[in-house]
């Protein structure tokens, strides 16, 4: 029997779940693209990204293209945590169907 309390609370919040999902689809996302896709305010997005970064799920890259750009990507730990989180959700749905 799976212990549902083990679910990653950092990812489970809807805003952070959206960020993790988008980061799982591409190698990296620019801050402005994440903001546009998730329709979040700058402050909200920065706070969520900082939480995920502190948890070791997200890596930050700052580079100078035609203007300064900050990009975010999933770390190996973050990708693994996201896959485990998906597995937990599937188990919850399956368990409720029995």
């Amino acid at each position: 029997m799976f212990d549902f309390e083990k679910i990653d609370k950092t990812i489970h919040e809807k805003g952070r779940l959206g960020i993790m999902t988008l980061l799982a689809t591409r190698p990296s996302w620019a801050f402005q693209d994440l903001k546009a896709e998730l329709k979040m305010s700058d402050g909200n997005l920065v706070t969520h990204l900082r939480t995920l970064h502190d948890a070791g799920h997200v890596a930050v890259t700052k580079e100078m293209l035609d203007r300064p750009q900050t990009s975010y990507s999933l770390t190996v730990k973050g990708r693994q945590a996201f896959q485990e989180y998906l597995g937990v959700l599937e188990q919850i749905v399956k368990a409720a169907q029995r």
Partner: peptide
């Protein structure tokens, strides 16, 4: 977490 919450989160993931 109940089933409806899990389904809602899976919907968010799928849609994104």
């Amino acid at each position: 977490i109940d089933r409806s919450e899990a389904e809602e989160h899976l919907r968010i993931i799928r849609s994104l």
